[in-house]
Simulated scan of single mutants.
Amino acid sequence: MKKLAFLTFVALSFLSCKENSKEEAKAILSESNGKINNVSIIIDDNLWNGEIGDSIRKKFAAPVDGLPQEEPLFNLNQYPTRVFEGFVRKSRNVIVIQKGSESGFVNTVDKYAKPQNISVISGSDTEDILKVLEEKSPEIIKSIKASEIIENQARMKKSLVSDAQVQKMFGVSLQIGFGYKYDMVKDKFIWLRKEFNSGYNSILIYEVPINTIEKDTNIIANITAMRDEIGKANIHGTLPNTWMITEAAYAPYLFEVNVANKKTYLTKGTWELKNDYMAGPFVNYAIKDAKNNRYLILEGFTYNPSKSKRDLVFELEAIIQSVKFLK
């Protein structure tokens, strides 16, 4: 029995040391690099310039839903296999395409740097690779978007604005990034705004009874009517008789998602000022809070005329998705 106990102790010690070694190796990894929503594609030129490259661009650089101008889902940076070293190897998001004896897909986290997401797609020929791409692209896109939200939140954590007023009024916490200021605070309504040279980002926080959104099955119409009512009451332009509405010319996109472990309606579309020419994209998260008999509304909208808006909206989503219910 003593011998068995000793062998068990040795085995457990070995496993413990092995796990510790893994953790230590992970701890000494250098920080990954790359701008938000940038993806490094490791693929030889002959494949990049053919069917496989076309498929990658079609999937990973597809237009983002809800933006007024066409912008790609991700910025793609292509590198031949022979240069997959140095700063490229430390990219945060990496997709490797390679020809081999078998087709397959492997996803690895924090291999050469951290945080890092590496997806390897292989196949014996072009047809094989295209088949794996078709099957695995949605999974890769979902993974990259989720990790980029976390990366954006991590960057914002370095200098947060106090959310004390949000906590007091709505019973939730929110990671509010640097530069946002309380533009309007009144009964059950908060407007946060960050101004920059070419425009501004805004976040609205308010709540409505569950019946406001669920009074019938036409959820998108109910959310649109709610937005327009809130805009008329609170979001006005500098000219008289102007207020924010949902742009009628473009139907918003509606998705069912999960935020803070709660059923959520995500609406993406374009806002405009009635009787004026200002416009831009918005994202509206209607989070069902059955415990408190309400929908908590967290909306972000941006104004950045004639310039890119994708990453501005993504920043708003990173802030909104940080919400935690305190009661």
Rank of each mutant, 00 (worst) to 15 (best):
E127D: 06
G34T: 01
S103T: 04
E71A: 07
K3C: 06
S119Q: 05
I42Q: 08
L76I: 05
S21L: 14
L73D: 10
P80V: 09
N46W: 05
D125M: 00
S143M: 09
S40H: 07
N38A: 00
L7H: 02
Q78K: 10
K131I: 01
R92G: 04
K22F: 15
T108P: 00
E24L: 08
G104E: 11
T8C: 04
E51T: 08
E51N: 13
G100V: 13
Q69G: 03
A61Y: 07
E85D: 12
L130K: 10
D110A: 05
I43K: 08
S55F: 07
I141Y: 03
G100W: 09
L29V: 09
I43D: 02
V106S: 15
D44E: 03
K142E: 15
V39A: 07
I141Q: 12
L7R: 13
K114Q: 14
K111C: 03
Q116W: 09
L12M: 06
I118N: 05
K111P: 11
E85Q: 12
S91T: 06
I41P: 01
S32Y: 03
L67I: 05
S137M: 08
D128W: 01
L15C: 09
N20C: 03
C17T: 13
K59G: 13
P80T: 10
Q78I: 06
P63Y: 05
L12P: 06
F9N: 06
K35D: 14
K35Y: 06
V132W: 08
N20F: 01
I140K: 07
Y112G: 04
A5C: 04
G104H: 11
Y79G: 00
V39Y: 02
C17A: 15
K131Y: 10
C17W: 15
F84A: 10
D110I: 03
A5D: 14
S55G: 00
G66E: 07
N37Q: 08
E134L: 00
C17F: 15
Q78T: 13
I118E: 05
L15N: 10
V39S: 09
Q98V: 06
N37W: 02
S13H: 02
A61T: 06
S13M: 12
Q78H: 14
K111N: 06
V88F: 05
E134S: 10
A113M: 04
A5E: 15
I43R: 13
K142M: 01
Q98F: 09
L73T: 09
L7K: 06
E24I: 12
I56D: 03
V106L: 14
S119F: 08
S101R: 13
L47Y: 10
D110P: 04
A5F: 14
N20M: 01
L76Q: 03
